[in-house]
Amino acid sequence: MNIFRFLGDMSHILSFVILLLKITQGKSAAGISLRTQELYMIVFCSRYLDLFWNFSSLYNSFLKVVFIACSSAIVYIIRFKSPQKDTWNPELDNFPIQYLIGPCAVAGLLINQDWTPFEMIWAFSIYLEAVAILPQLFLLQKQGEVENLTSHYVAALGAYRGLYLMNWVYRYFTEDDYLQRIVWFAGTVQTGLYIDFFYHYYQSKRGGLSRPVKLP
């Protein structure tokens, strides 16, 4: 465990807290992509299947449960709970996620570490996580202007990815046997997706002003 990894996980948790606060306190899921949240739920449920047979640390196992619980709670609230479910707009949030899930499933079957069922599922979850933010980014793009909490949410997720990238660089230089091609490739793609958002986030937040983020 290094500081980048730890801060990455913390900012991942922060993103859940921001989103849960937004939809429970604000009573609205406007601007939040249920599609992205469903993808995250699939990602965590498939990747953390190994909760049943792997134990790396209490920290890891605890966070796995937290991630599954938070993403499921978010999906449940937006899909089934009033008044939040009435604020979700299926016409705006209509990214065809089958075109993300399908290719990721095929990639998981073909490109994985050692051809065991769990390695295939695990690789699938890594690929799917890389693109899971796309429906959210497309939704923001359509709306043009992004509410503050929503922009903080995406920024926290982006920070989590950036910190994980630094964690990999750090581990590569400090550990002898550390090589993870699949994770590095998918993680770099994933972090790249946030670059445009961060540019606009920085533009609207600099100077201490708390203006909403505007996207072209």
Partner: peptide
């Protein structure tokens, strides 16, 4: 270098 099999990241 060996490809890492143990999953110690989240």
């Amino acid at each position: 270098l060996r490809e890492m099999v143990e999953k110690d990241e989240l």
